[in-house]
């Protein structure tokens, strides 16, 4: 396995009486697709939020690319190369597809204290935006306002915006959420195409997609990892079977 890109050490997070993350240690290598799975309420999105910097762990540490980032705010982490997509699509509805992505590009091209030149005419924002749109297969829709996209297209745009800053680490929070079977296949292919060029942490309920995409999988139950391994190892792990099948039989 190649070098370590992301590491969490004993993350703990409580919301009142609920333990959302417990004893959470992950080691994610550069170029890996690492999936987080678990029953509802396992605290998967909480992990994504802590990695992205939206909430702070109560204790523990997060290291990224050789740097301690536990208490860095979200925007700083984004500029260090951590991008994320949201479970609930949150593209900028009034803007066009291209504007959405070029806004994402803008975040990585120096500061934005530029008050004079129209941003829509800056080639250094527009060109990388088009490149990102090609990667997610939306190049034909660049002039359309995001509000007019189909649900599946918005999910693609969501990933496109995450890619626009050329991140090292991509956090995908349920990219297939609410998609039909056709959309799921398309999104799986899209993520497959990104593999190796960047590291991905994937939270997803669609097990078929997870087992197809992931190099390694961590299973969370009540915020605590109970197993980590390759898809084959996870498939036969007795604890995992108990956690999942036990829940289903109950």
């Amino acid at each position: 396995m190649s070098e370590l890109l992301l590491e969490t050490v004993n993350l703990e997070k409580r919301f009142g009486a609920v333990q959302a993350s417990k004893n959470l240690s992950l080691r994610i290598a550069s170029g890996e697709v690492h999936a987080l799975i678990g029953p509802n309420g396992a605290g998967k999105t909480t992990v994504i939020k802590q990695l992205a910097g939206e909430i702070r762990p109560d204790s523990g540490a997060i290291r990224f690319d050789g740097r301690e980032i536990t208490y860095l705010p979200a925007d700083v982490r984004a500029r260090l190369g951590i991008a994320r997509s949201f479970q609930i699509t949150s593209v900028f509805q009034p803007l066009t597809v291209e504007e959405n992505v070029s806004l994402a590009v803008q975040a990585h091209k120096g500061h934005s204290f530029r008050f004079w030149r129209p941003a829509a005419q800056e080639p250094q924002l527009v060109l990388p935006a088009r490149w990102a749109l090609e990667r997610v297969g939306l190049e034909g829709r660049s002039r359309v306002p995001a509000a007019h996209l189909s649900h599946g297209e918005r999910r693609q745009l969501e990933v496109g915006m995450a890619l626009a800053g050329n991140p090292k680490l991509l956090l995908l929070d349920e990219p297939m959420a609410g998609m039909g079977p056709g959309g799921t296949v398309k999104m799986t292919e899209l993520i497959m195409g990104l593999k190796r060029s960047l590291t991905i942490v994937l939270v997803e309920h669609d097990m078929k997609a997870v087992f197809q995409l992931a190099d390694r999988i961590t299973v969370l139950v009540y915020g605590e990892p109970i197993a980590t391994g390759t898809p084959e190892q996870i498939r036969i792990n007795p604890d995992v079977r108990r956690a999942y099948l036990g829940d289903e039989q109950a």
């Binding site: 979200a74 984004a78 994320r84 949150s90 994402a104 975040a107 934005s112 008050f115 800053g165």
Partner: peptide, 29 residues
């Protein structure tokens, strides 16, 4: 008018629509 359509204006308008998203894109809003 210049301001609103500049890079700066875009960041400010984006923060109005969804500030959290702007931060996760990397803007110190």
């Amino acid at each position: 008018d210049r301001l609103v359509f500049s890079r700066f204006g875009r960041v400010v308008r984006g923060a109005k629509v969804n500030e959290l998203r702007m931060q996760s894109l990397g803007f110190p809003t």
